[in-house]
Every structure is written in C-alpha cells, then in structure tokens.
Design a protein around this nucleic acid. Sequence first.
DNA 1: TCGAACCATCACATGGATGTGAAGGTCAAT
DNA 2: ATTGACCTTCACATCCATGTGATGGTTCGA
Lengths: 130, 130
Amino acid sequence: MRIGELSARTNTPRRLLRYYEEQRLIVASRSPNGYREYDEPTVDRVLQIRGLLDAGLPTRIIKQILPCLGKPRALYFPDATPEMIATLEHELDRMTTRITCLTHNRDAIAEYLDAVRDGNPPDVLVEAPA
Amino acid sequence: MRIGELSARTNTPRRLLRYYEEQRLIVASRSPNGYREYDEPTVDRVLQIRGLLDAGLPTRIIKQILPCLGKPRALYFPDATPEMIATLEHELDRMTTRITCLTHNRDAIAEYLDAVRDGNPPDVLVEAPA
DNA sequence: TCGAACCATCACATGGATGTGAAGGTCAAT
DNA sequence: ATTGACCTTCACATCCATGTGATGGTTCGA
C-alpha cells in the first residue's frame, strides 16, 4: 500500500511515517515512480511504534527494542551485544517503574472520579486556588 | 528548605524546580531576601511530578491531575467542572492504554532477555541489518 | 573584608516529535 | 489537455522539557 492508505489505517500523519522511516523504525520499498510502498505487517508495526512513543519511549530506544518483539521473533536478530543487552535491561527497569507510577496515579484518578460521580465529593473543600 | 536542598532531595535540577513553579505545579514562599522557601510535602510532590512526567504526561495535564491525588484528598479541590471531569476521564483512558502497551512490550522484552540469558537465543538468525 | 557557596532573574540553545507549506512529479478520470 | 488527488523532497516553525551561562545579590566563615 502507499503512504496515504498506511496513514489512514494507522491514523498517523504522513509526515510522521516519513519521519519513522528516517529514524529507521520502518522500511518502505519504492515503486518505479518513487512512491513509497508498504507491506501489510507495517500497519501493526506503526501501531506498535505509536504505542511505545506514546508510552514515552524515544525512537532511539524503540529502534533497539522493536527487533526483539514481533511474532517471528528471530526475524531481525541483531547481534545481541552485551552493551545492547544492558540497554534493554535498563529500559526494562524504566518501563516497570513507569508502569508502577502510571498505575498508581491512574488508580488514584479513578478513585477520585468515582467519588465525584457518586455525588459523593470529598468531605471538605478547603481551598480553591485562583 | 531552599531550592538547593529540594534539588538534592528530589534529584532534580534547580532549573526544573523553577520551571515547575512557573508551570504552577508547585509553589514556593519567599524569604525576606527573595530566596524560595519550600515546605516538606513539596518533596513528595516533586517526586510525583517527575514520575508523571517520566510516564509521559505533559505538565498541562499534570497540573489538572495533581490536586486530585495527594493524601489529604480535598486539600486543594478545584471546582470539578464537567469539562475538567471529561479531561480526567480522557486522561484516565490514555493512561490505561499506555499501561497496557507498556506492560505488553515490557513482558516481551523480558521474555526476550530471558531467552538470551539462558544461552537459548532465538532459533534462527535470519538477517542482521547494517 | 574577601571568597565560597548559596540564591535570583533572564535569555538563549538544544533535542525530539510534530505541524505546515512550497515546489514539483505521477496518474487516472473527464 | 487539464484537473484533482495522489506522491516526492526540502526546509522552516512549534511545543515542551531541558541545558547552560551571564550577571548580580546574600550570607557566612576564614
């Protein structure tokens, strides 16, 4: 498919698809006329990239992580240098921390919203900032 | 305490503490000489801010979320306008999505690392990109 | 009284993910 | 043959969280 369709199906601006390619997160072949041509799996890949990006990972890291993910696990299997392993381990920790933090705060917000929704707003209303 | 101590205790550059104040995420009183003066709870607050920031929330959102969090729940209780509730609900969804995505990918990475560590690297090594 | 270690404000720089638009090629339908 | 909807590259702009440094005030101990 061409960039327009990929853009539509992933809900991602064309600009960004080109950017991801520039960052070597995705690849595209070219039609004789120079148009980018994407294959089907790219759709999922872009979705995953967006997810990770939105989750706060920079493209630099995503680039390292992606190859270790998809179904056909070993499809692209870069030499797992110790240095890269270390990066992954580090990022693993960061992700766990993030998850904890996010979960924590999400639960707090949920609880808060529940309280408000039940017409059961917090007991005291001490101060309302300007 | 003054900014130096807060910076040390939260492991946060002074520059950022001033920035958070500018974004109205924290407040500081001033000593007669103009120095910022922080109270104890600010330490936790900064930590929480950093966590949320690292989790990918922008200060704009954090500002809205923070008041709904801390222990003395109703301490700052802005009028919960329907519009703000909507924002919170929306952000709640986003956080959940994020958590799912992060968890998903983290598990995949963990699994991958386990495999590599066990001297049990993926079966096939198809292609190593330049 | 001098220097070191704080603090202040201001302002400009950077990096990463994006937005936006110009200038132009391709192609299908009219 | 022209129009309109695609596509290309290039380049500059924006937002946000940060870095960095200039310039100067305050406080304290040697």
